[in-house]
C-alpha cells in the first residue's frame, strides 16, 4: 500500500516505543553501569571498578548459596515442566479422553491465581502442625519413615527448596499444556496417517511423530521456563519471606535484600549476574536446538 508519508509508522509507534525505551532499555543500561559503583541512593555514586564483582564472587557466601539454589531450582523444574506438559497435552488431545475440555481448563487454573493466594494455600498445606500434607501422611502411616517427625517442610532445609520446585511445576504446568495442545493440533495429519498405515500404536506415534514435530514449541517452552525459573522471586518471597538462609535463598531474593539495605550498586551487580546467566543459558539452548537433525536434512 502507498503511504502518504515515509514515516507514518512512527506516528503510531513512537509513544509505545518511548515507554519501553524509558522504562526498560535505559534503566537496563544504567543498571548495568551502576554495577561498577557504590551507591546508597543518595549523594553521588562512587566508582569502584570491579569491586562489586570481586565481592560477589569472592566474599559473599550467601551469593553462592543463592546461585546454587537458583541453578538447582532451574534444573529441577524446567525438564519436568516441559516433559510432563507434553505428555499431558498428548493425552488431553485424544478424543477418547473423557472431559478433556474441563481437565484442560482446570490444569490452567493455578496460573491465573495471585501468587500471594497460592503462597497462603501451600504454606497452610505444608504447615508442620496443622497442615494437610502431614495429616495425610500421618493417616497412611508415612510419618514412621521420618526420624524427627514432623519435618520442617518450609524451614531452612533441602525440603523447602524441593517443595518450592514442586509448587513451581504445579503452577506452570497448565501453560505448557495449552501451548503443546496448540502445537499438536497443527501437526499435519498426513504424518500420522503414514504411521497409521504402518500399524503404529499411539505410544509410537506420540514419541516418533508428535514429539519431533513440536520441537520448536519445546524450545520456546524450555527458554521461557528457564527464564521464569532463573528469575523466580514471588514464590520464594511468599513461601519464606525472602529470609537469608542457605537452602531457600535465590539470586532474586538476595538481590532484593541488598536493594532494601540501600546497597544499590551491589544489587545491580547481582542483577547483571542474573542477566548473564539467562543470556548464556538461552544462547546454549538456541545453539543446541539449531544443530541440524537427520529428519531436516
Amino acid at each position: 500500500m502507498r503511504d502518504r508519508s515515509l514515516n507514518s509508522g512512527w506516528a503510531f509507534a513512537a509513544f509505545p516505543l518511548a515507554v519501553i525505551f524509558v522504562f526498560t532499555l535505559l534503566p537496563t543500561i544504567a543498571g548495568a553501569g551502576l554495577s561498577f559503583f557504590e551507591w546508597s541512593g543518595s549523594g553521588l555514586p562512587q566508582f569502584i571498578g570491579l569491586e562489586n564483582y570481586y565481592a560477589a564472587i569472592g566474599h559473599d557466601q550467601q551469593m553462592w548459596f543463592a546461585l546454587r539454589n537458583t541453578l538447582i531450582f532451574a534444573l529441577a523444574t524446567v525438564p519436568v515442566t516441559v516433559i510432563l506438559s507434553f505428555i499431558l497435552a498428548a493425552i488431553l488431545r485424544a478424543e477418547w479422553f473423557v472431559g478433556r475440555r474441563i481437565a484442560q481448563a482446570m490444569l490452567f487454573m493455578p496460573m491465573v491465581i495471585s501468587i500471594v493466594a497460592i503462597g497462603f494455600i501451600w504454606r497452610w498445606v505444608l504447615d508442620p502442625h496443622s497442615g494437610l500434607l502431614n495429616f495425610a501422611m500421618e493417616s497412611v502411616g508415612l510419618d514412621h519413615l521420618f526420624s524427627n517427625w514432623p519435618p520442617p517442610w518450609l524451614g531452612d532445609s533441602p525440603w523447602a527448596l524441593g517443595g518450592m520446585c514442586f509448587i513451581h511445576v504445579w503452577r506452570n504446568l497448565g501453560f505448557g499444556v495449552v501451548l503443546y495442545l496448540a502445537a499438536l493440533s497443527r501437526v499435519p495429519k498426513s504424518q500420522y496417517e503414514a504411521a497409521g498405515v504402518d500399524g503404529a500404536g499411539s505410544w509410537h506415534a506420540t514419541w516418533r511423530i508428535s514429539w519431533p514435530a513440536v520441537r520448536h514449541m519445546t524450545l520456546f517452552l524450555i527458554i521461557t521456563s528457564s527464564i521464569w525459573s532463573l528469575q523466580v522471586f514471588d514464590l520464594v518471597w511468599v513461601m519464606t519471606g525472602g529470609a537469608e538462609q542457605p537452602w531457600t535463598d535465590v539470586l532474586n531474593t538476595h538481590l532484593y535484600r541488598e536493594f532494601s539495605a540501600n546497597r544499590l550498586g551491589y544489587s545491580a551487580t547481582i542483577g547483571v549476574f542474573i542477566l548473564l546467566i539467562t543470556a548464556v543459558i538461552t544462547a546454549m539452548q538456541l545453539w543446541w536446538m539449531r544443530q541440524p537433525r537427520k529428519d531436516e536434512a
Binding site: 532499555l25 532474586n252 544499590l264 547481582i270 542474573i274 542477566l275 538461552t282
Partner: peptide, 16 residues
C-alpha cells in the same frame, strides 16, 4: 528487551 530481566532495570525504573 523482552529478554531483559527486570532485576537489572527495576533500580533505575524506580529512580526514574
Amino acid at each position: 528487551t523482552m529478554m531483559l530481566p527486570y532485576q537489572v532495570y527495576f533500580i533505575f525504573a524506580y529512580i526514574l
